[in-house]
Nucleic acid binder design. Sequence first.
DNA 1: AATGAATGAGTATTCATTCAT
DNA 2: GATGAATGAATACTCATTCAT
Lengths: 210, 210, 210, 210
Amino acid sequence: MSSDRRLTAQGVERKQQLLDSAATLFAERGFADTRVIDIVAAAGVAKGLFYWYFENKDAVFAELVTSTRQSHRLAQRDAIDPAADPLTQLRQGCEASVRFMADHAHLYALLQAEGPDQRVSELLREGTQVHATDTAALLERGIAEGLVRDEDPMLLAYGVLGSVTWFCHFHRTGRITQSAEELATFVGRYVVRSVAAEGVDESLLVGTAA
Amino acid sequence: MSSDRRLTAQGVERKQQLLDSAATLFAERGFADTRVIDIVAAAGVAKGLFYWYFENKDAVFAELVTSTRQSHRLAQRDAIDPAADPLTQLRQGCEASVRFMADHAHLYALLQAEGPDQRVSELLREGTQVHATDTAALLERGIAEGLVRDEDPMLLAYGVLGSVTWFCHFHRTGRITQSAEELATFVGRYVVRSVAAEGVDESLLVGTAA
Amino acid sequence: MSSDRRLTAQGVERKQQLLDSAATLFAERGFADTRVIDIVAAAGVAKGLFYWYFENKDAVFAELVTSTRQSHRLAQRDAIDPAADPLTQLRQGCEASVRFMADHAHLYALLQAEGPDQRVSELLREGTQVHATDTAALLERGIAEGLVRDEDPMLLAYGVLGSVTWFCHFHRTGRITQSAEELATFVGRYVVRSVAAEGVDESLLVGTAA
Amino acid sequence: MSSDRRLTAQGVERKQQLLDSAATLFAERGFADTRVIDIVAAAGVAKGLFYWYFENKDAVFAELVTSTRQSHRLAQRDAIDPAADPLTQLRQGCEASVRFMADHAHLYALLQAEGPDQRVSELLREGTQVHATDTAALLERGIAEGLVRDEDPMLLAYGVLGSVTWFCHFHRTGRITQSAEELATFVGRYVVRSVAAEGVDESLLVGTAA
DNA sequence: AATGAATGAGTATTCATTCAT
DNA sequence: GATGAATGAATACTCATTCAT
């Protein structure tokens, strides 16, 4: 029922409360095992209010995915030095991803979650695709400048995303014990090595300026 | 109801039918969105029969995960030349993973699926952990022989698993269009590059013997 | 919340807006399928305001029924020539009913609607009963004057009401395509024939003065 | 979920039980005020079973409407003497309607009920239309033979149906106290008078052979 | 082994109504 | 008067699981 309802200041706040509760619960127990009643209970409001702010359970999930993706992207953009070379930018982006996931672990979990239905799965997939395409563009510039191995940039991008995603996943689930900062550095290095061309200057690989 | 029931030849066949139907459906729509009735309908038997062969819905999932993991492991073992150097073995293992996933796409999908409950999630996690530990051991030998960069082998293993897993995921979902064979070669090369030490012999990186 | 609140001029207007919206919606989709929110949305006001003017949803329905019934009755009264013979009066009343329904189709529909609860059903029933009793009295006079067949006047009244009601119903739902005026004439004639005694003067049957 | 499920003898019986319970309750309190749980409770079975036999609540209603209409039609067919003149057939049909409704009051109530949704309303309307068309055909023959007034047969049919329906309605709701048999005779006579042409033989009007 | 019937706990969603501002 | 937020009781429907035959 929400759609483009005009919300008061209080309304905006309340909606955010619900989004937060939902995000936490979805991350903790997954979408299917989170009941609407759990979400409203966590936010301390009545069940009906949920449907004042959201069309249905799927809609909250979708909204979370969208906004998380947006924040993630902004975080990356902020972390990337537009004047730097592609390889450095790649490292910066990946490091930013690791830090973002550390700060918003519960939201980030959603991006990999099994979505509710077809529609939302689509949403997740699209987001990933955008991310991959961005990364591929970066790699392509790297190839042109001789910094990245001359391979299909899209494939390389998938590899990069895969390792970053999994590092984060294992960190979130406690199987990587290093600090987020340490992990970020490691991941930046790992990713750069994965795609760097033969004979690239050592300084780029080590990432001294990171 | 099942546990360790003694099955006739026909029984074994029936059970396999049900497992196959379940695997396909779980992969297509996920565990939660697959109903027992869908599974039996796909196998062309009555609902009650499901419980003759399986304790419950979770049990099928668990059984599928376990057997898939086993097959996967066997496939890798067969593909690895015990006499080869660690880097080559790593490449062989990864290539085998890609081929296995291509041949058993619907089963492989399960290994990354959102499990039913805590217990099964645990099962999935354990399997991944075993795989990671195996890989880390291989990498450790590589480090000792100077073929792999001197970094935390477990971290490297996570990176390797992440990229392989994601390559397979994107291939399975149609976003990588190369043939399984081409992809296997690419992934093997990608992974080796990701972990290889500086100055390793070119032949190992290119993987001529693959 | 309403009861006998003193309303300002604007208030009266607002209330009428709501009544109109409600009448239209009730006629279109029935009482149960019309939500309070639909009514206020159609009137362009906020939900809370509904309860400033009406006790509850049932109350609007009751108010509509009562006022419609009143209007209907007035319309009949105006149409009937007090000096005419019972048979002519009957015709005039029935013709007036048809015209009324044509002019206020959406209101008239309510009089036959499935009411909300016991109370309002009671209200509807009572209204019908009053109408039937009035008609029966007219018929009784007709019988006394030898213009109407000597049968139970109440039964005859039910027959009359039934046919008039159904003619209107079929006209309202588009299954009678004649104009309201044509239909009125037909119905007047039909009803008179239904109850007229044997050998009544032709002029009364034809209704030249209609 | 039902559709064309193959039912065992027991299944057929159970389904009928549920239909009976539903019919009674719908007639007593209306569709909206009858909960699925009431229906199953009345039949003494568990809630889930309802959905084994019916798609949903609307479906039972639709099924009841259809079968009632069918029975009604058969009852009429049986009551009509194919060799009789149209006017007599009309009387026989109307009398049969009255008797049918007296015997199946709770089912018959459904035919006039406010249906659940658009679809079922459509069903009800269609049924009525068929009935009206049948009656109109009969009247047309009557007109051709000079037994019925020369007016639009469809309009006459609506008038006939309206009075019959309302007689039944008032009888069912206790406002007509005569016995069903008495009422049937009265209605037959009333209807014939409503449509008979001027100067038709008295014997046809009185209906001695009824 | 196999079937179809039966069970019932569990959950999303609706909507009339009330309330604070 | 007017608004939008909040409440919570009520209910249809799903689906894993069990049972009688």
